[in-house]
């Protein structure tokens, strides 16, 4: 059974890497969870973000960061649900519950 992978994204320059790594990990049967924080929450407005949400097992963003980047919390990015507009506790879950960890 493939190991699970948690990805913590804090750089707004890495969406293509997040997508590439998620795709490769899913092809190996891995459970993949991704959490975006701070300026990386702006990536949720990238047209490719929705495809990441469809591919990964779980995608969430830090809602406080999203608000600080100038977005309304009612403006839920395509691919997410209001429940996935979350807190740093999601990062804690990645660290505690996933076999492998990657920060990007």
């Amino acid at each position: 059974m493939a190991k699970s992978l948690g990805i913590f994204v804090s750089s707004p320059e890495n969406l293509q890497h997040v997508i590439g790594i998620t795709k490769a990990a899913k092809a190996k049967g891995s459970n993949v969870k991704v959490f975006f924080t701070w300026k990386a929450t702006t990536l949720s407005k990238d047209p490719a973000f929705k495809s990441l949400c469809e591919m990964a097992d779980d995608v969430s963003i830090c809602v406080d960061s999203y608000k600080k980047q100038g977005f309304s919390i009612d403006d839920v990015p395509e691919g997410l649900t209001p429940k996935k507009m979350a807190t740093q506790a999601q990062h804690g879950i990645i660290i505690e519950d996933f076999d492998c960890y990657l920060s990007l």
Binding site: L5, G20, A24, K28, S30, D99, C100
Partner: peptide
């Protein structure tokens, strides 16, 4: 970058 190789290395 070869993401497939990277994931193998991470695992």
């Amino acid at each position: 970058p070869d993401y497939d190789t990277l994931v193998d290395k991470i695992f």
